[in-house]
């Protein structure tokens, strides 16, 4: 009897757990899957086997408790803070901004997931300008990069007129080890070193590349409030 049962256990389980030892592979739904070798991740894998649960008795006890507690007033439900919110809390509480950058929280001190960063460059083409960026943080931050947009319309080779920003660490080069401080420094860098090689506003990028003097005067005109070509810019000095 025991042997037979052992076999039926094994057959059932073997249907799903055929051992394969050459490569590790992880596939998860929703554009996520990864391959890695165990040896690259020391301490991640353990050999002892646990997992002998039998919880039905616990379920029974709980059901009885629940029936008893049905009429008593329950605790008020509490929404948990996501791991992303906690990580962001750390990023924010450790911010160390240059004097040219400041941060504000339009929804008050308890909503850190949406905030604005104001950059006032004190050198370069954009000296004296005031540029506001909005940050939206995902609940799975830092797995996903913050969504950053420039609220101030700006004549800039790497920022388009809708406020999209071409900064590598916001998209293709984002890594969870980076943080909010890194992004703010990256944004500030865009104003001290605008780059014609990654254009999001091709007109501005072309002028910067071919005629830096004209680029400089275009920037001044845009920041003072006025037209550059067909585009009107609101004053931001």
């Amino acid at each position: 009897m025991k042997v037979q049962n052992y076999v039926s256990d094994e057959v059932n389980i073997a249907k799903f757990a055929v051992n394969f030892t050459i490569s590790f592979f992880f596939g998860v739904m929703g554009d996520k899957c990864l391959n890695l070798r165990a040896s690259l991740v020391p301490g991640l894998f353990r050999t002892d086997v646990k997992g002998r649960l039998s919880m039905i008795k616990l379920f029974k006890v709980k059901e009885k408790q629940r029936e008893l507690a049905e009429n008593s007033n329950g605790k008020p439900p509490v929404k948990k803070q996501s791991a992303g919110e906690l990580r962001l809390h750390r990023d924010i509480s450790e911010l160390n901004l240059p004097k040219t950058c400041s941060i504000s929280f339009p929804n008050g001190k308890d909503d850190l997931m949406n905030f604005e960063v104001t950059i006032r460059p004190d050198e370069g083409y954009y000296n004296g300008g005031i540029f506001v960026f909005t940050f939206q943080i995902s609940p799975i931050y830092p797995h996903e990069a913050p969504k950053v947009k420039c609220k101030t319309k700006v004549y800039h080779p790497n920022i388009d007129l809708e406020g999209n920003v071409c900064l590598n660490i916001l998209r293709e080069d984002w890594k969870p080890v980076l943080n909010i401080n890194t992004i703010i420094y990256g944004l500030y860098h865009l104003f001290t070193e605008p780059n014609h090689e990654d254009p999001l506003n091709p007109d501005a990028a072309g002028v910067l590349r071919d005629n830096p003097k004209l680029f400089e005067s275009n920037v001044r005109r845009a920041m003072a409030g006025g037209y550059v070509g067909q585009t009107f810019f609101t004053r931001c000095i």
Binding site: F16, A17, V18, F24, L44, F45, G51, L53, I56, F59
Partner: peptide, 29 residues
């Protein structure tokens, strides 16, 4: 989990049917 009729998967099974068929159970810590 409910019955205890056998050990539970410990604790991450991956299945890949792209080329041939590979499955593997890994115990994450």
């Amino acid at each position: 989990i409910a019955s205890g009729c056998s050990k539970t998967l410990s604790n991450y099974l991956t299945y890949n049917g792209v080329e041939g068929l590979h499955t593997k159970v890994t115990e994450f810590v």
